[in-house]
């Protein structure tokens, strides 16, 4: 991760409200595996004169920040109320099974081959399209097990629809 990029992001935001969040988001997005390595966090802490413990506390508090490398593709299942009433839980379980990803707390949310990471979001705010799944930043509505399997397979085969 180039120090120059981080410096520039910090310079543009430092001192503003919400600076740290914006900086961490920008730096994470820049990383090809969409996460914040420890060295990067230390660098930011030093540059912004923030105690490293505080940066670490922020990075682990917010769900958006990843401290581990993410898979090539992200499948994000909405677990909001409307989606839940329309079966998003079983959708989550089935895609986890398909990709060999456990749901336990200490288990990795990324498939063994590094291709897919499964995340959940509390609510996308797309309730009329329930159940909602976001595949690599593309929102898909009215998803069922069959359509989800199809979409995931398409991505796996490299055909980005």
């Amino acid at each position: 991760m180039e120090a120059a990029f981080i410096d520039q992001v910090i310079a543009s935001r430092n001192g503003r409200p919400g600076a740290l969040l914006a900086i961490l988001e920008a730096v994470q997005n820049r990383h090809p595996q969409k996460y914040l390595p420890e060295a990067t966090l230390r660098y930011i802490a030093t540059a912004m004169k923030i105690p490293p413990a505080r940066i670490y506390s922020v990075a682990t508090f917010y769900a958006l920040f990843n401290l581990k490398p993410q898979g090539e593709h992200t499948i994000c299942i909405c677990r909001g109320t409307a989606c839940h009433t329309r079966g998003s839980r079983s959708l989550l379980e089935s895609v986890r099974l398909d990709l060999g990803i456990g749901g336990g707390e200490d288990e990795s949310p990324t498939s063994p081959d590094g291709k897919f990471t499964i995340r959940t979001v509390a609510c996308f705010g797309q309730c009329a399209l329930a159940p909602v799944v976001e595949l690599d930043h593309r929102i898909c509505g009215h998803v069922n097990e069959r359509t989800l399997t199809r979409e995931v397979a398409a991505i796996a085969e490299g055909h980005d629809r």
């Binding site: 409200p17 969040l21 958006l64 979001v121």
Partner: peptide, 10 residues
Amino acid sequence: ISMVEGAGAF
């Protein structure tokens, strides 16, 4: 007005 994006904490 400036905008700040949240980071996934209800």
